[in-house]
Amino acid sequence: MSNVPAIDIHNLTASYERKPVLWEIDCQFPQGKLIGIVGPNGSGKTTLLKNIMGLMKPDSGYVKIFGDKLNKVRHRVSYVPQRESVDWDFPADVMDVVLMGRYNPKKLFSRITQEDRDIAIEALKRVNMLEFSKRHISQLSGGQQQRVFIARSLAQQADLYLMDEPFVGVDAASEDAILSLLTEMKNNGKTVVIVHHDLQTAYEYFDYIALLNTRLVACGPTEEVFTSELLQEAYGGRLTVLSRIGELIAKKDFPVREKGQKDN
């Protein structure tokens, strides 16, 4: 494993519905760690993840993954959206969803091969869901649905995993299963980045934490970040000036950067 950071976020400013929710984020996530993006509601955690994943365009700044542009290393990255972001009434069983991790965007007329199936079965075993492979996804509990999402992600066989709130609405058994899987992934040299809102558990789960509240409060090993001043800064109320200027930008349809101005 090289020393290149898994994720390098450089001067990132990003908006959600034209309102800037992330200001000048600058931080690096090391490889082979369990990393938490932690902050209160509305602090821009999901927006940060979506910008890393190229699902949203930043107003300024850039993100590098394994020292490269996302498009060059996309096959090494896997993303698990929030469970509530999809309609679980979609006509698919558990196996169908996990196999989606094997779909190839570059190929036309592609069909699922036996190898794809074997990989999907392996992924389901790792999240303890193999026995449910024929079950319709609407008939699963929240925790089981989350594990299916993670299995789909495992089927992509990536090196870097980004997960958005995988512990929300999850029963105790699923939480244990997910947590031990994450540790196992880390031990296999994978990097896992998790958006998480609960401070209590964040300390136990993660090796490395980015503490966020519309701007980066701190970023580093958990022991260094978990100080009462920093937590107070992240959770002790918003910066009213920042949020008011954000609203102004949205209302007047103002650009965050002037035209032609480049980020260094």
Binding site: V80, S85, F90, A92, Y103, P105
Partner: peptide
């Protein structure tokens, strides 16, 4: 339809994941 069946099924279920895998 036969050519892009996987494409259509994945974006119908989970657009964000599809996009993250590299589907346009």
């Amino acid at each position: 339809l036969a050519a892009i069946y996987p494409h259509l099924s994945i974006i119908s279920f989970d657009r964000a994941a599809a996009q993250s895998i590299g589907f346009n």
